[in-house]
Design a protein around this nucleic acid. Structure first.
Length: 280
DNA sequence: AGTTGGACCTGACTGC
DNA sequence: TGCAGTCAGGTCCAAC
């Protein structure tokens, strides 16, 4: 599912493909995917006729910053199965195409979302902090605001398990199931352990693992496992699945010590994957 | 306030 | 072969 590395991959590709392009027309094909608006027209009015000045990202969301005079932002939250592609005109439309942004050069930015957990929503202005979806969001894990001091401050007060805390966007933005599992593995910490139980050295390892895993995953252009529908803006799969140590590897031998990887249900019933020998 | 559990959604998979 | 049931998970909301 698209998390920070997948959203960042799409951001970079969109930036090179559509920066400077003008939006001619916007169509909403799945109303649910534009549920933040009263009507498709309301969304279109904030986007049509404007020029894409910059492409940004906040957590797992891709942001198209439009115009500078009457600034607005088109936010695309990818949810579980969202994908954003830039296609030539008259490319056959695939199933679950939720929104189409037609550019004045006739190319289209297509937003496809099979499970429709994602969302396309536009706002006036360019400041993500003023948008309700990002209210209270934690720091970007690859920014300078993400430090071991910050981790101490937020983790020491949390009784929830580490996996849940890592996936909490209010603590740190952009981490979901895949990378929470992988970060815990590389930090040598069980995802089942209470966040407040981490010692200083453990937080140091967690901080380092977070930066390393996410940075490497961006370099590999995200993760596309067998049942992941994730594709980048060119329709290509990512390659980080080659580098997964634990995610979706229950029962398979640990790549470090050979012990079978375990799967434990976390609150809510979702699986956490971890090595009982490498992670304490 | 923090934590937990259910709902949303569809396709893939399992078991009878 | 077919069909019901289960699982997957990002995020919101309700309940404890």
């Amino acid at each position: 599912m698209p998390e920070l590395p997948e959203a960042e991959t799409i951001r970079r590709q969109l930036a090179s493909l559509v920066t400077g392009a003008k939006v001619r027309h916007v169509e909403v094909h799945i109303a649910r995917s534009a549920r933040g608006h009263e009507s498709p027209e309301e969304l279109a009015a904030l986007v049509e006729g404007r020029t894409i000045r910059e492409v940004g990202r906040r957590g797992k969301a891709v942001l198209l910053f439009l115009d500078s005079k009457r600034p607005s932002t088109l936010v695309i939250r990818l949810g579980m199965t969202g994908a954003v592609k830039v296609v030539p005109p008259r490319e056959p439309e695939e199933k679950y195409t939720a929104g189409v942004v037609e550019l004045s050069d006739k190319r289209q930015i297509r937003y496809v979302d099979q499970r429709q957990f994602g969302q396309m929503v536009a706002y006036q202005g360019h400041d993500p902090n003023s948008m309700p979806e990002f209210a209270g969001y934690g720091p970007e894990p690859l920014s300078d605001a993400f430090t071991t001091g910050y981790l101490k401050q937020v983790l020491s007060r949390r009784s929830a398990i580490l996996e849940v805390v890592l996936m909490n966007q209010q603590i740190v933005a952009g981490i979901g199931k895949i990378y929470a599992d992988e970060i815990c593995f590389r930090a040598g910490l069980r995802p089942t352990r209470r966040a407040s139980s981490l010692t200083g050295p453990m937080r140091e390892r967690l901080w380092r693992a977070t930066r390393e895993v996410l940075t490497e995953a961006v370099e590999y252009r995200g993760t596309s496992t067998l049942d992941e529908t994730y594709r980048d803006a060119y329709g290509m799969p990512g390659r980080f699945q080659e580098r997964l140590f634990v995610y979706q590897r229950a029962g398979e031998p640990c790549k470090v010590c050979g012990t079978p990887i375990r799967r434990t249900a976390m609150p809510g019933g979702r699986g956490m994957h971890w090595c009982p020998k490498c992670q304490k």
